[in-house]
């Protein structure tokens, strides 16, 4: 990494950790729909997206490994909740399908924009991955968009469920864009344009769609982004998830499956 000074490396690690942790945790949550989806097709969709997200997180952990962090399995399976950098949005239990669907919509549009921005990153190894992930995440946003549209324009019950889920999820989604201490470094190094730009572009992509489907985005005066996840402060839902996810690894770190 010729172009990196120490500050750049610290900034890149911070960025990689939050992206990879978001993907690992939302991937695990998505996998909890395996066998429980409201339709067989949805069961398969959430399971496929889980596989995508967890696979994507592994390559980001691999970049962290190249920057001096422990190997991907170790990083994924041996940290406690307070060492994770995911946002609260991804760690909440799957709840009812309406919540999982709205979360999936808000999260995946943010990922789509994020990897679109990173496709031009000066950190070339990350840019290559971002260019690859864009095409995969396109299927996730198409899926989310199809179902949110159908349900938001469906029966009275489905409309009100979508609206209630959006109301409950909005502030969590704003927590995706919690800024870290390296925003300026990332910008000046050309690694990433930053969370504020990402948030603006995300709103430009999701708000018109939600409005088109007749959903009301909560009034801006009520916006209260749920922060803390990027700094290691989490809900009580994360540690039980990690304990379950790492159960086999904890019993036998050399187990192969």
């Amino acid at each position: 990494m010729d172009f990196f000074n120490e500050d750049h490396i610290a900034a890149a690690k911070d960025l990689l950790y939050k992206m990879a942790d978001d993907q690992l945790i939302i991937g695990h949550r998505n996998s909890e729909w395996t066998g429980l989806g409201p339709l067989l097709e949805e069961d398969i969709a959430f399971s496929s997206m889980a596989q995508d997200k967890i696979g994507q997180s592994e390559h980001l952990y691999e970049l962290l490994h190249q920057l001096g962090e422990s190997d991907p399995d170790n990083v994924a399976f041996t940290r406690n909740a307070d060492q994770f950098h995911c946002c609260h949005l991804v760690e909440w239990p799957i709840g009812e399908y309406d919540f999982s669907l709205i979360r999936h919509f808000l999260f995946d549009f943010a990922e789509a924009v994020r990897f679109d921005m990173l496709a031009n990153s000066s950190y070339e190894d990350l840019a290559k991955i971002a260019r690859k992930y864009r095409g995969e995440i396109k299927y996730h946003t198409m899926h989310a968009n199809t179902w949110v549209q159908q349900l938001a324009t469906g029966s009275d019950e489905s409309k009100s469920r979508m609206q209630n889920a959006l109301n409950e999820t909005w502030n969590l989604a704003l927590g995706i864009f919690e800024e870290g201490k390296y925003e300026d470094t990332l910008k000046t190094a050309g690694i990433f344009e930053g969370e504020a730009v990402l948030k603006r572009r995300w709103m430009d992509s999701v708000i018109p769609l939600l409005e088109k489907y007749g959903l009301n985005v909560p009034d801006e005066s009520t916006w209260a982004p749920v922060y803390g996840g990027r700094q290691g402060f989490h809900t009580g839902h994360l540690q039980p998830l990690l304990s379950e996810m790492t159960e086999v690894y904890a019993i036998d770190p050399t187990a192969d499956w």
Binding site: E41, I44, A45, S47, S48, M49, Q51, D52, Y139, M142, H143
Partner: peptide
């Protein structure tokens, strides 16, 4: 098209 997701990615 039934679903863009299938038995493999």
């Amino acid at each position: 098209l039934e679903t863009p997701f299938g038995p493999t990615l």
